[in-house]
Computed example of a mutant assay.
Amino acid sequence: MKHFLLEGEHLVPFSELSDLVPLHHAFLQKGYDDGVFLFSGPQIPAHGGFLAARAESRKALDTILAEEPFVKAGKMRFSRVTEFDAAQYQPILQDWFREPSGDA
């Protein structure tokens, strides 16, 4: 499993995104429910946001991100996507960063 830090950049003022916010939140919740997202949140001020995600590959991540409602509407882009290795982390995050064993 690969891990990524993403920076989203709004291409329009945040006020123009209000009709898509419920869909955006539903997209994020699905990512949390599926175990793909670890955390997310807006920049301050709200010119974009940050997201920590995991996927089998960058291509698989891009497939997921293509369904993000702000992106689909052409109102946001992920301007920076950085793959990283979590060398250290709080013990509570062990399950999220551990490689799947396939023994389930």
Rank of each mutant, 00 (worst) to 15 (best):
F84G: 01
Q88M: 06
E9T: 11
S79G: 09
F39T: 14
P42W: 10
D62R: 10
R58V: 12
F37Y: 12
A52G: 11
W96N: 03
S101V: 05
L38E: 04
G48E: 10
P91I: 06
Y32I: 14
K59Q: 11
P91E: 14
I92G: 08
I92M: 01
L38A: 07
E7T: 12
K72C: 06
G8L: 05
G48I: 07
L38R: 02
K75P: 00
G102E: 03
H24S: 08
A55M: 01
A46N: 15
A26I: 04
L61M: 12
A104T: 03
F97K: 09
I44F: 09
R54H: 07
V71K: 07
A26N: 08
L61W: 10
A46G: 11
F97D: 14
G35S: 05
R77P: 00
F84W: 09
A86E: 03
V21T: 02
P45V: 03
F4Y: 02
A66R: 12
V12G: 03
A66T: 07
A52E: 02
L23I: 02
M76P: 02
K30V: 10
L65N: 13
T63M: 12
D33G: 09
Q88P: 04
A53D: 11
A87F: 11
E56I: 08
E56Y: 09
I92W: 01
P45W: 00
R58Q: 06
F39L: 14
Q29H: 04
S79E: 00
A60F: 15
E9W: 07
D103M: 05
H3P: 04
R58C: 02
T82E: 03
V36K: 08
H3D: 00
D103I: 13
W96T: 06
G8T: 09
F39R: 05
R77E: 03
R58D: 13
